[in-house]
Nucleic acid binder design. Structure first.
Length: 339
DNA sequence: AATGCGGGGTC
DNA sequence: GACCCAGCATT
């Protein structure tokens, strides 16, 4: 029986883990808590000096609770996410009023405090009290997503559920503090976002992403928020037989090789003579991965019996007998035929 | 489920 | 300049 995931990670940690970070000496619940709050969405190298200054000024829960919030925030200046500092101060006061100045050793008690969510609570339970609890920070998400081959952006709740379940399942039977630290250390130093050192990873033997050469695409990145917009004008031209003018698209690119409505590079010059001035039709919005494509049709009736400018790539088609036409374009034609 | 919060590191 | 970082609270 090969060593378990957790055992391999812990053995690796003994040789290669980080053991001299400021909050690890000494490693108390209070120091773990403060460090975890500072480390939310903030890199280790940035936090180190802030943490050291903070501990000098506020060495205990009581000293923090009795401070003015402005004094706390002045030490936070430059770290960003200042609600973290305010919540830290507020939570210290709650601890002094309701918990005798001690941090709870259980997840529910910790998560009831402002600024402490599921992952930070798990970090305090495991690293502050050496008790079993999973964490799921950016490092652990990356390690788990790669090792188990989890697709999808971890920000999606379905993906997050899978990752939390994995984190829970893989907890060791002891050394809980070292295990949490090891999980983050592996992500920070070996299973890095760019160019992971898989040759040095204790989990490479059964890592799905490594074996399938997909480390570079896992975990999946956050989807693009605001895509570029592109606008094209289309000619929606019908002749007196009720046929529509279609144009074959270039073989590569979007809808490559399919038939579509002629794209107008010159909005004022139709590809053939019209009976009446064209009128704008309903704008078609087509979402693609990298941009939003707005297709603005100009609808018109063509004069009969005239040569088509580009006869090889342009032709009339009956709407009930269309060739390979993308569905959105097909709908556009249908709507124009029977409004 | 999506968004705001922030300064800094990295490619 | 885009993307991400030991996430959480709010909507």
């Amino acid at each position: 029986m090969p060593p378990s995931y957790a055992d391999r990670l812990l053995t690796w940690f003994d040789d290669h883990g980080r053991k001299h970070l400021p909050w690890q000496q000494p490693r108390t619940p209070y120091r773990v808590w403060v460090s975890e709050i500072m480390l939310q969405q903030t890199q280790v190298t940035v936090v180190v000096d802030y943490f050291t200054r903070f501990m000098t000024r506020f060495p205990s829960v009581e000293s923090l609770a009795s401070a003015q919030v402005d004094d706390v925030l002045s030490l936070w200046a430059g770290l960003g996410y200042y609600a973290r500092g305010r919540n830290l101060h507020k939570a210290a006061q709650v601890l002094c009023e309701q918990h005798a100045g001690k941090l709870p050793a259980d997840l529910a008690g910790l998560e009831a405090l402002p600024g402490i969510g599921r992952s930070t609570a798990g970090a305090i339970v495991s690293m502050g009290f050496d008790q079993p609890a999973p964490i799921l920070d950016g490092n652990v998400k990356r390690v788990l997503a790669r090792h188990a081959g989890i697709d999808g952006w971890p920000g999606r709740s379905a993906v997050a559920r899978q990752l939390w379940a994995l984190a829970e399942d893989r907890l060791p039977s002891g050394r809980f503090a070292d295990y949490s630290q090891a999980s983050m250390d592996l992500g920070a130093t070996v299973c890095t976002r760019h160019a992971p050192a898989c040759h040095a990873c204790p989990l490479n033997a059964d890592c799905v992403a490594h074996r399938s050469h997909r480390t570079h695409e896992l975990p999946a990145p956050k989807p693009k928020a605001n895509r570029k917009r592109r606008r094209s004008q289309l000619w929606l031209i019908r002749n007196e037989q009720g046929h529509y003018l279609l144009e074959r698209r270039p073989p590569v690119g979007i809808w490559g090789g399919l038939w579509s409505l002629p794209e107008a590079d010159d909005a004022t010059t139709p590809p053939l003579a019209l009976v009446e001035p064209p009128r704008p039709g309903p704008v078609l919005v087509h979402e693609l991965t990298h941009f939003t494509w707005e297709l603005c049709p100009m609808s018109a009736l063509a004069r009969g019996a005239q040569a088509i400018a580009d006869g090889d790539n342009m032709s009339w088609y009956a709407p009930d007998n269309l060739p390979g036409v993308p569905a959105p374009i097909r709908r556009l034609i249908e709507e124009d035929r029977a409004p």
